[in-house]
Design a protein around this nucleic acid. Sequence first.
DNA 1: TATAGACTTAGAATAATTCTAGGTCTAACC
DNA 2: GGTTAGACCTAGAATTATTCTAAGTCTATA
Lengths: 143, 143
Amino acid sequence: MDTPEYPAIDREALTRRLRTHGVTPTSQRLDIARELFEKPAHFSAEDVYERVNGVEAAVSKATIYNTLGLFVAKGLLRQVFVEPGKVIYDTNLDDHDHFYDEDSGTLIDIGSVGIAAAALPPLPSGTALDRVDVIVRIRRSQP
Amino acid sequence: MDTPEYPAIDREALTRRLRTHGVTPTSQRLDIARELFEKPAHFSAEDVYERVNGVEAAVSKATIYNTLGLFVAKGLLRQVFVEPGKVIYDTNLDDHDHFYDEDSGTLIDIGSVGIAAAALPPLPSGTALDRVDVIVRIRRSQP
DNA sequence: TATAGACTTAGAATAATTCTAGGTCTAACC
DNA sequence: GGTTAGACCTAGAATTATTCTAAGTCTATA
Ligand SMILES: [Mn+2]
Ligand SMILES: [Mn+2]
Ligand SMILES: [Zn+2]
Ligand SMILES: [Zn+2]
């Protein structure tokens, strides 16, 4: 018998995870999901492209973007905007905020700073709260 | 005598404002500042380009970007990141946060939600707090 | 008035992302 | 088992926002 590329249990768990969220598990989507969901982490689209396509490119950039967008739409992933022209995909779906190191570009999970809806001014009429993004920007301090 | 393009007092006040912040007041910078600082507001670079260059283009796109960048560096302006690939320049320098209407793309000033430094986890060593950005994302609610 | 350095500019270049249009795969049905 | 509609994937072109380049212009100071 062949040694599978990676344990069947993983692939099956991933398959279930995608199906649970209404995503048809294609082979490309599983390849991408395998890199993403190994452990909670932050990725750029380029990161994902490089990790999925180790030596030979197997999954196209268009599919990387399509899949990341689909995963976001289906609630498997969230986006964080810290810099113009650079989206970070976050596999940590718990309610949490971030430190952003402006010198190194590193994003670090912190617990939710927890802004109570009551602390906010009334929302414009006809609108509802989607979510609150808190980015704590930090810099190297002078030594 | 000629009617000046706009009152001399304004131009002088703007000139002082730029000088105070260490910015040499060139004619292009004053044209840009006049649009920006008329009243507190949010602008994209394209907005500024269009407002400064009414009928005939007088200030280049490179200068718009150079100047906006300089104004940010000198503390005359701050940037807000709400969407990838789109920087918003904010002339309101008071400590404040924003509603961002994801349907219309509108940014609305709100008072500072005021996150106490004590509410945050300890910063990574060697780093200092720069600032905390809070974006309250809202959407049209179902009618 | 001369001049160094600061400033401005058109247009090219870059980077991230999206679009296009045609080929491939697959689930459902015969 | 064979068909097929629709979903999916892809290379490469296109788009968008922004930055860079290189050369000309302005201006403060001597
Ligand atoms: Mn979920
Ligand atoms: Mn100021
Ligand atoms: Zn995170
Ligand atoms: Zn504002």
